[in-house]
Design a protein around this nucleic acid. Sequence first.
DNA 1: CGGCTTTGACCCGCGC
DNA 2: GCGCGGGTCAAAGCCG
Length: 156
Amino acid sequence: MTDKTPTISDSPDEDWSFELSEYLKFDNDQWPDDDPESFVSDHVLMNTNEVVDNFGGSGSQVEGSSSRELINAQVEEQRVAFKTKSEVEILNDGYRWRKYGKKTVKNSPYPRNYYRCSADRCPVKKRVERDRVDPRYVITTYEGKHTHLVPNNLGN
DNA sequence: CGGCTTTGACCCGCGC
DNA sequence: GCGCGGGTCAAAGCCG
């Protein structure tokens, strides 16, 4: 551990000054609009720990639903949510995003931002929202897969 | 000048 | 049928 992180650039000027606290994976289930707050403060947080702890394998097993369909959906859709500790929501993940909408969430005093990949044909979408229970935390949800290489012309 | 941000309006699905 | 909530698009303006 004496060397620096090989994955992340050692550029001190980068926006990587954030801490990846927790991250979660979404299969096919969506956030219940009826009570997303309960989902976040109960399901997500708890499941997140389990997923993180058991990541690398099928840690969290699916309920009695069609697990196969769920797995298939996650492979095709790839919906992943990251919970990041940062003051800014503009985290540098290596891709260029173009903001295409802002919406206020009813269960959150903070607005939700919608980003889309600036690439020509990237169907990837990104949703950035601030945690309502922890304003210093930012929840970034990625949707889709990148069909192009990562543009390194961002922070460089 | 180009790319991107911003905000409002519009649209869609669902519930009552 | 209408209202609510959420999501997306589009025109305008701004910044580098």
